[in-house]
Design a protein around this nucleic acid. Structure first.
Length: 151
DNA sequence: GCCAACGTTGGC
DNA sequence: GCCAACGTTGGC
């Protein structure tokens, strides 16, 4: 079982949206590294810290759970979508996604500042400068620590 | 709104 | 295969 951190902008799709939807296809990932994590390393039941980016302040606000195997992201073939990719071949789709289930909204957010200030979280990818990856793996001990800080 | 960091594209 | 130009992300 693996642990993850997934970023989303609360103005676009935040933790409350996931809570309401209960389950959501994580479409629109257009970065090869992030795609590879979903395609190769995610398993149903994996848990992910739900992170609000471009928020004031940014930080971890809850937990989601991988709810499906990877499957093609349909938006890549939708010409009207911002995520349309004319170079993707329908017979060999370039972009995949997984579904996430809502698990929990934390009683309080753990802000990026809090993450950076916590010695036990040293090395966490999201705290490193210039880290733009929308999906990153998280060590179990880091995952557990963030949960403790939130409760 | 600015800008640093980083990924992608495409000419050569 | 290099690298300049460009686009995007995301903290501040």
């Amino acid at each position: 079982m693996n642990y993850w951190l997934i970023k989303s902008e609360p103005d676009v799709f935040g933790i409350d949206d996931l809570k309401k939807a209960k389950r959501e296809p994580w479409n629109g990932i257009r970065n090869y590294q992030a795609r590879n994590f979903m395609r190769d390393d995610m398993e149903i039941g994996d848990l992910a810290l739900f992170y609000h980016s471009n928020a004031k302040p940014p930080g971890v606000v809850g937990i989601a759970e991988v709810a499906s195997a990877p499957y093609p992201d349909d938006l890549q073939f939708d010409e009207k979508s911002d995520y349309y990719d004319p170079k993707s071949n329908p017979d060999d789709p370039r972009w995949v996604m997984v579904d996430f289930n809502f698990v929990e909204k934390f009683p309080q957010m753990v802000s990026l500042n809090d993450l950076k200030a916590e010695k036990a979280l040293e090395g966490m990818l999201v705290t490193q400068r210039g880290s733009r990856l929308s999906i990153t793996p998280v060590a179990k001990k880091h995952f557990d620590k963030v949960c403790k800080m939130a409760r």
